[in-house]
Design a protein around this nucleic acid. Structure first.
Length: 296
DNA sequence: ATTGGTCAAGGATTG
DNA sequence: CAATCCTTGACCAAT
């Protein structure tokens, strides 16, 4: 089991997701920003290694406008050396890596241009990991998409689009159950039709499910990961007390996390803590897992 | 230096 | 149909 957090480190004084307005795009500014983002990523990864946080979600914003027509810079070539170096660091320290495109990546939209843009965004994020020479256990997580008043048709479009994707993207793509539209059961259907692994989100499952107990749900999701996909990944969070349903908590609720680890039992999963205070909660989670002798 | 409005991208819901 | 919500950090211009 590896424990991690997404995108931002609050302890360090740098960000790997620095961007700028489309209106102020220049090649010079672009190169400067990307260089600074990758430099920060390197620092974050080093922090993670030093603190036994071995799972990390890289920001989607490291290369601003990478999938936008305005960007004609060959950033993959320009930063090849940098990315290969980061990739070696990741491999040498046995880090687990994921990326999570934002909500506007929708593979099943009825609008062709939205699907095109979505595929371009996936291609960019996939390329970051490809140039780093990460293996197929480094994943790209997306959601089922929209429903458009007809879920069977919407899922059919997801399946068709998936089958047309380039192989490198297919090898990295995983689908995550969401809290309003695509439940674990829906994701299992997508899995049956495409072979796509399911990245399980416990909190989303609490918000939207078909009666599956947590322990069963975990087993079903884990079973969709093949050897080459690596240890199954999951997102962990809990409800922010007194807030709207589906709102992530600001700080890990240790009692709930302990109970969740009990539900997990013998199952090995890499856990992404989707909690507002980022590495602070992840560090607490590592300590809890150690106390329960689930981590060395 | 601080702050409030705004930012490439979607979809669902409400009115 | 059009406006608003979801959700997020950081940019950016105004103060």
């Amino acid at each position: 089991m590896k424990i991690g957090y997404p995108c931002i480190n609050q302890t360090l004084d740098c960000t790997s997701s620095s961007t700028f307005r489309l209106a102020s795009f220049t090649e010079e500014r672009f190169l400067q920003t990307v260089a600074s983002n990758f430099a920060c990523l390197q620092r974050i990864l080093q922090y993670n290694v030093e603190n036994d946080l071995l799972f990390f979600r890289m920001s989607s914003d490291m290369v601003p406008f990478a999938s936008h027509r305005i960007c004609t810079v060959d950033w993959q070539m320009h930063f090849k050396g940098t990315l290969e170096k980061i990739g070696r660091y990741i491999k040498n320290h046995n880090l687990r890596i994921s990326m999570h495109p934002d909500q506007f990546v929708v593979l099943n939209s009825p609008k062709p241009e939205i699907v095109e843009n979505s595929v371009a965004e996936l291609a960019y994020q996939c390329a970051v990991m490809d140039v780093m020479q990460l293996d197929s256990t480094a994943k790209l997580q997306i959601h089922g998409g929209g429903v458009y008043g007809d879920k069977p048709s919407a899922m059919q479009r997801f399946i068709q689009t998936y089958q047309l994707l380039p192989e490198n993207i297919k090898h990295r793509l995983v689908v995550e159950n969401d809290d309003r539209l695509y439940s674990l059961r829906d994701c299992l259907y997508l899995h049956e039709q495409t072979g796509i692994p399911i990245l399980f989100d416990n909190f989303h499952h609490e918000c939207l499910n078909n009666g599956e107990p947590m322990t069963d749900a975990l087993q079903m999701a884990a079973a969709t990961w093949k050897e080459q996909d690596g240890v199954p990944m999951m997102d962990y969070s809990s409800q922010a007390y007194g807030q709207r349903k589906g709102k992530h908590t600001d700080d890990i609720v240790e009692e709930l996390f302990r109970n969740f680890l009990l539900d997990l039992g013998e199952l090995d999963m890499d856990m992404m803590l989707e909690i507002k205070n980022k590495e602070i909660s992840a560090l607490k989670a590592v300590q809890i897992a150690r106390d329960m002798r689930l981590l060395v």
